[in-house]
């Protein structure tokens, strides 16, 4: 299945801003993060199609996944 992955802030360093990648069905968000060598503990926000999601969620074909470190402002 095709997943679009968007990375932000320092997650982009030595990786990418946005990529479309092929994953076997049953892949979770945690699996994607592990494959990208992003430590799970550093992940602050996860969104799929703009809605909050958890690491153990299984992705579906066509999902747009956004991963952020913990960030704030205001």
């Amino acid at each position: 299945m095709q997943i679009t992955i968007k990375l932000f802030a320092n997650f982009r360093e030595n990786r990418f801003k946005e990529a479309r990648r092929d994953y076997p069905s049953g892949t979770t968000i945690g699996d994607v993060a592990t494959g990208l060598e992003i430590e799970h503990g550093l992940i602050g926000m996860i969104f799929v199609h703009g809605r909050a999601a958890e690491l153990d969620r299984e992705l579906q074909d066509g999902d747009v996944l956004a991963l952020f470190p913990l960030l704030g402002g205001g």
């Binding site: 320092n10 952020f68 913990l70 960030l71 704030g72 402002g73 205001g74």
Partner: peptide, 23 residues
């Protein structure tokens, strides 16, 4: 991580992409 890393590096404008992402 917010006050020690995120804000010093990216400033408050780091919110642009976050708020865009969540609509």
């Amino acid at each position: 991580p917010v006050s020690g890393q995120g804000l010093p590096t990216y400033g408050t404008a780091v919110l642009v992409n976050i708020l865009h992402e969540i609509g």
